[in-house]
Design a protein around this nucleic acid. Structure first.
Lengths: 145, 145
DNA sequence: CTATGTGCAAAGGGTTTGCAGGGGA
DNA sequence: TCCCCTGCAAACCCTTTGCACATAG
């Protein structure tokens, strides 16, 4: 699901456009997120960023994450009151998640058919579908030998 | 979406079966939830229960909510890091939510077609679908006069 | 009677914020 | 330079928990 390897420059551009400084910390956090395929939480992002440069604090990670969310570069995944997890967000593509209830692993998938039905449901209720969130919780099917 | 008006007795039975006391507080909290059609959060449940009987504390509301969740009498709805909200859960029926992004209103709906597709998706990924969560976020379509 | 449940207040855990110093543009 | 950004630690908010007392069965 990782197609856009240029988040860093994409963010740099967004910062420039919005008159926001592209700081050292923001660059590193952008890189960390770009290089993470595993939906890390804020603390994990902090640890990874901090390993690259110890000048980065958890507070900055939170502030930066929020900024990136506003720029639609980052997507927050809420998992039942626990720590929120994050993933890079590409402009063109949308996917949902299947969560392995045993391992916590998150698998991404795309299903247009469901998306279309969602739009239809919303319309029928008198709403324009603006966004949606869908998570499936599953148990791995073990192959019989 | 409120079909089962007998949650109270349903819970009483569950308590008996599990060797758990059906206390005064549990009865009142059960009633409050049964009489709420608006997905209240824990604090709101506390306020409503407390109005009926001031002996009820917020801690007990949380403990009771957790108990009812285990009994599958109550369903937790997580909305983006804010307070969790709750709704009565009926044994037979499953529904999802459409949230009005302007008013915060929650509308319930049922769509079997989507449920079937979800099962299919999970299966294709090698998983047995155990549960799911789906929220649509929509904007009310204003009728043109 | 006694194990379970409760109220209270304090602790927890994730996230946010005030402040004074730091550093991009 | 000048304001935005950052680190630090404290504050916040919702939720959970330890303890001593209360109570359902």
């Amino acid at each position: 699901m990782k197609k856009n390897k240029k988040v860093t420059s994409r963010i740099e551009k967004l910062c420039a456009e919005n008159g926001v400084k592209f700081t050292h910390q923001r660059r590193i956090i952008a890189e960390v997120i770009s290089n993470s395929d595993d939906h890390p939480d804020a603390n994990e992002v902090y640890l990874r960023a901090n390993k690259i440069d110890s000048r980065i604090s958890l507070a900055t990670v939170y502030r930066t994450i929020k900024l990136f969310e506003e720029y639609n570069v980052l997507n927050r995944i809420e998992l039942g009151g626990k720590r929120a997890r994050y993933e890079e967000l590409n402009e063109d593509e949308h996917h949902d998640h299947l969560i392995d209830i045993d391992s916590g692993e998150i698998i991404e998938f795309v299903n247009e058919e469901i998306e279309n039905l969602q739009m239809k449901v919303a319309k029928k209720l008198g709403y324009e579908l603006v966004d949606h969130r869908m998570e499936l919780f599953g148990k791995k099917i073990l192959k019989k030998n």
